[in-house]
C-alpha cells in the first residue's frame, strides 16, 4: 500500500467506509419492520421498546459520542411528554406528527439552556447537575398542578388520528407503526450526524479535549450542540409515550427512568447507535419475562446482569463476539478488501 501513491477517490472511500451500511444493519431493520406484520399481539410492549430505544439513543448521542454522562435524561423525556400532552389537551396542535416535532423542538431548547450548567466540571458534577435538573422539573410539574394535573397526571389527552387517517387503536397497532417509523427516521438522522465531519469532531472532543481545542475546535460549542440535539431526541421519545399512551405522569421525570435508560444503554453498548435499541429490547423483554416468573424479584436479575456486564467488561464481550464472527466467516469464502 505504501509503495503505490495514494489517490483521492480511494482515500475518500476509505474515510467514508465507516458510514457504509453493514449487512447486519439491514437485517436488523427488516426484522424490525417484519414485527409489524408478524407479531401483532405484542405491539403494546414493542411500542414501549421502540420509545425506550429512542430514549436510550438520545443518551448514546451524548455519552457514546461526546463522553457526557447524565443521570437526568428523564428531565427531557418528561418535558417532551408534558409538551405533547398539553398541546393535545389544550387543542393547540392536534396533528400528532406536528405536535411531536414541536415537543421535540421545545425540549431541544430546554437542552440548549441547561447545557451551560452541565458542561462545566467533571463527570461527578455532571451526574449531580443532570440529576438535579430532573428533580427540579419533576417538582415544578408537581407544583403547577393546575396546568399539569400534578400527582394525578395529565388526564384527558386525546390524540387525533395520524394524518387524519389512522386512529390510535387499543391494541397499539397504529401506535407501534408510528413509533417505529419515528425511531427509524431519527435513527437515520443520528447516523448521518455521527458520520459527518461534525460527528468526527465529537469523537475527537471525547477522545482528547485538550488536543481538540489545539486544532481549533470549540470543545464547549460541540458539547452544547450535541447536548441540545440529544435533549430533542429524548423529548420526542417522551412525547411519543404521551401520544401512544394518551396520558402523561410525573414518573416520566423520575430518577428511576433516568437510571433505567442508562442501564439499557450500558447493556446494549455505547457508541454505535444500536446499543440503546438493543438494550431497550433486552431490558424490556427480560423485565416482562422475569416479572411473570418472579414478580417480586425481577430487579434482582436485572441487577445481576448489569453487574456481570460491568465485571466481565464490554471489551471482553466484544472479543468474544469477534471470535465467533471469525469462526462464522471462515465457513464462507473470504473476500479480501482492497
Amino acid at each position: 500500500m505504501s509503495a503505490t501513491p495514494l489517490n483521492t477517490p480511494d482515500v475518500a472511500r476509505l474515510v467514508m467506509s465507516r458510514a457504509r451500511w453493514r449487512f447486519s444493519e439491514i437485517v436488523f431493520w427488516i426484522a424490525a419492520l417484519a414485527t409489524i406484520f408478524l407479531v401483532p399481539s405484542r405491539h403494546l410492549i414493542l411500542t414501549e421498546i421502540a420509545i425506550l430505544g429512542l430514549f436510550a439513543l438520545s443518551l448514546d448521542l451524548i455519552l457514546g459520542y461526546a463522553g457526557i454522562i447524565s443521570l437526568g435524561q428523564a428531565a427531557f423525556f418528561g418535558f417532551g411528554a408534558y409538551c405533547a400532552g398539553l398541546l393535545a389537551t389544550h387543542q393547540l396542535v392536534t396533528e400528532p406528527v406536528l405536535a411531536l416535532a414541536l415537543a421535540g423542538a421545545a425540549t431541544a431548547a430546554l437542552g440548549f439552556v441547561t447545557s451551560f450548567l452541565v458542561l462545566r466540571g467533571s463527570d461527578l458534577t455532571r451526574i449531580m447537575v443532570t440529576l438535579g435538573i430532573a428533580l427540579i422539573l419533576r417538582e415544578l410539574a408537581n407544583r403547577f398542578d393546575g396546568l399539569t394535573g400534578g400527582a394525578d397526571g395529565l388526564q384527558g389527552v386525546t390524540i387525533e388520528p395520524l394524518f387524519g387517517l389512522f386512529r390510535f387503536d387499543m391494541f397499539g397497532h397504529t401506535a407501534y407503526a408510528y413509533s417505529l417509523a419515528v425511531l427509524f427516521v431519527l435513527f437515520l438522522l443520528a447516523r448521518r450526524i455521527v458520520n459527518s465531519p461534525f460527528g468526527l469532531s465529537l469523537r475527537a472532543v471525547k477522545g482528547n479535549p485538550l488536543r481538540a481545542s489545539a486544532v481549533g475546535i470549540s470543545v464547549n460549542g460541540r458539547m452544547v450542540a450535541i447536548y441540545t440535539i440529544a435533549a430533542g431526541y429524548a423529548g420526542v421519545a417522551g412525547a411519543l409515550l404521551t401520544q401512544t399512551a394518551q396520558f402523561a405522569s410525573l414518573d416520566m421525570f423520575s430518577f428511576e427512568r433516568s437510571a433505567d435508560v442508562l442501564l439499557m444503554l450500558i447493556i446494549g453498548g455505547t457508541g454505535y447507535l444500536y446499543g440503546g435499541i438493543i438494550g431497550a429490547l433486552i431490558f424490556k423483554l427480560m423485565q416482562d419475562w422475569l416479572a411473570s416468573m418472579t414478580p417480586q424479584y425481577w430487579q434482582f436479575w436485572i441487577g445481576l446482569v448489569l453487574v456481570a456486564i460491568v465485571i466481565i467488561g464490554r471489551e471482553r464481550l466484544e472479543q468474544l463476539r469477534g471470535a465467533i464472527r471469525k469462526r462464522i466467516l471462515r465457513l464462507r469464502p473470504q473476500k479480501h478488501a482492497a
Binding site: 474515510v15 460527528g199 469532531s201 475527537a204 486544532v215
Partner: peptide, 25 residues
C-alpha cells in the same frame, strides 16, 4: 486519516457540517 481530517475540516470551515459524510469533501 480521521485525525488529520478533523483538523483540516476545522480549518477549512466545514468542521461543523452535519449533513454530509466525513470524507466527502
Amino acid at each position: 486519516l480521521e485525525t488529520l481530517g478533523v483538523a483540516i475540516s476545522e480549518r477549512q470551515g466545514s468542521g461543523r457540517d452535519w449533513w454530509r459524510l466525513a470524507g466527502s469533501k
